[in-house]
Design a binder for these strands. Structure first.
Lengths: 217, 217
DNA sequence: TGCGAAATTAAACAATTGTTTAAGTTAATC
DNA sequence: GATTAACTTAAACAATTGTTTAATTTCGCA
C-alpha cells in the first residue's frame, strides 16, 4: 500500500497555528462570523476541528486573534504620512486617500467583515478590538486635517466628518458588489470592478478633488 | 378558574400577519438575519412558531416580505424633491441630504441590516430585493446631480460617486455606535448621539457645505 | 346546525452548531 | 530509556437551528 502525501505540509516559517489563522481570515471574510462554522474551517485548513479550540480557545477568540494580527499594519503607514515633512497637508490627504483605496481594495472581504461586526455590535470583546484599530487610524487622519488648519493651509473643518467621508465613500463603493454596480452603472458584466485600475483611479481622483475643494482655502 | 387576557389583542387594522412583520423588523434590525431565530421572533410576537412559516413560508421569505413592505417609502419622497420646480439644484441636494440623515437616524437598525445583507451577499433573492431599492433611490439622486450640470448650476461631476459620498458618509457615521463615538470624540457617555439634534444638524450642515464646495461652479 | 376551509397548536424532525472529553500519539528533556 | 509535556484524534455532548407534521380548534357561511 502507498502512503499518499498529506494535503498540507507545514513549513517552519508558517506553522499550523498561523495556517489556521490564514484560512480563518479567508472564510470569515467570505461568509462572516456566524456564516463560518468551525467544521468548515477545520476541513478547509485540513486539521482536526478540536485543534482550533486547542489553539485559540473559542471561535470568538480566534476572530480576535485575527484582528490583533492585522492591527498594526496600516497604523505605521499612516503615521509615516502624517509626519512626512516633505509633504503639504493637502498632499498628505491625497496620499492618504490613495492608501485607503488601495488597502480596502486589497483586502475588501476582510474589511467587509470588520464593518459588519462593528455595525451589529454583538460580541463586545471583538467589537472593542476592532474599535481600537479604527480609533488609532482615525486619530492620525484627524491629526492631518487639524494640522492643515493650524498651518493655515485648510479652512476650519470637522476632522471627524472628513474622515467619515473618506472612509465612508470608499466603503460604500467597494464593500458591496451590488452597490458598486449601481455607482458605475455602465459596468461590463464580465470585468471585475474591484481589480479594474480605471475604477480605482476614478474613485481616488474623485475623493482628492472633493477634499481639495472642501479643505483648501 | 380565570381566563387571563392574552398578551396581544389583534386590532383589525394591523392583523396578526403584519404584527409578526413589525416584530420581525425589530429583531432582524437588532440582531441581523442569522442572529435572529424563528423562536425568538415567535415568542416576541406572542405567536406559535409554526404560524410564521404558515404565513411567510421560510425565514428568508419573511425577510424579503419586510424589504418589499418598506420598498416604496422613500422613493416617492425623492421623486418629489427631484421634480420640485421651486428648488434650485443645490437646494434639492440640500433637501436630499436632510432627508437621508433623517431617514437613516429614524430607522438606523433597519438600514444596518440592509447594509450587512447587501455586503455579505449570501441569499441571492434577498440581495436582489435590497439592490432594487438602492437602485431606484440611486437613479433619482444621480438624476438630480446630472440635472444640475445640464442647467449650468453644477460643475461636471461623477453623479454615482456623489451619491456614494452622501450615503457613505451618513452610513459610516450613524450605523455604528462605535464609529460614531470616534467621529464625535467629545461624546458625553450618557447622551445618545443618535437622538441628539445637535449631531444630526452637524452632519447635515457638513454634507451640505461639502456638496456646495464640490458641485457649485 | 353543519360543512369546509382557515387558523392554531404542541410535538417531532433532521441537521448543524461550538465545545469538550478521554484516549491516543509524538517529541523533547533529563 | 523513562518521564513529561505538547499535540492529535474520533467521538460525544448539549444546545439550537429552520421547518414540518398531524391533530385540533376556530370561524365564516350556507
Amino acid at each position: 500500500m502507498f502512503n499518499f502525501a498529506p494535503e498540507f505540509i507545514w513549513n517552519k516559517m508558517s506553522d499550523k497555528k498561523t495556517h489556521i489563522l490564514d484560512i480563518a481570515i479567508e472564510l470569515f471574510s467570505q461568509n462572516g462570523f456566524e456564516g463560518t462554522s468551525m467544521r468548515d474551517m477545520a476541513s478547509a485548513a485540513g486539521v482536526n476541528i478540536a485543534m482550533i479550540n486547542y489553539y485559540f480557545g473559542t471561535k470568538e477568540k480566534l476572530f480576535e486573534a485575527i484582528v490583533e494580527s492585522r492591527s498594526n499594519l496600516s497604523r505605521e503607514m499612516l503615521e509615516e504620512i502624517r509626519t512626512d515633512k516633505k509633504l503639504s497637508s493637502i498632499q498628505k490627504i491625497e496620499k492618504l486617500v490613495d492608501f485607503h483605496v488601495e488597502k480596502v481594495l486589497e483586502r475588501r472581504h476582510f474589511h467587509k467583515v470588520l464593518h459588519t461586526e462593528v455595525m451589529l455590535n454583538k460580541r463586545p470583546e471583538l467589537n472593542r478590538a476592532i474599535g481600537n484599530i479604527f480609533r488609532k487610524n482615525s486619530v492620525i487622519i484627524k491629526g492631518i486635517v487639524e494640522d492643515g488648519y493650524k498651518n493655515g493651509e485648510f479652512k476650519k473643518a470637522d476632522s471627524g466628518l472628513v474622515v467619515s467621508t473618506i472612509m465612508g465613500t470608499i466603503n460604500h463603493v467597494f464593500l458591496s458588489r451590488t452597490i458598486c454596480s449601481l455607482v458605475f452603472d455602465n459596468l461590463d458584466e464580465s470585468t471585475d470592478p474591484f481589480t479594474d485600475p480605471k475604477i480605482k483611479k476614478k474613485v481616488g481622483e474623485y475623493l482628492k478633488q472633493l477634499m481639495r475643494s472642501y479643505l483648501l482655502k
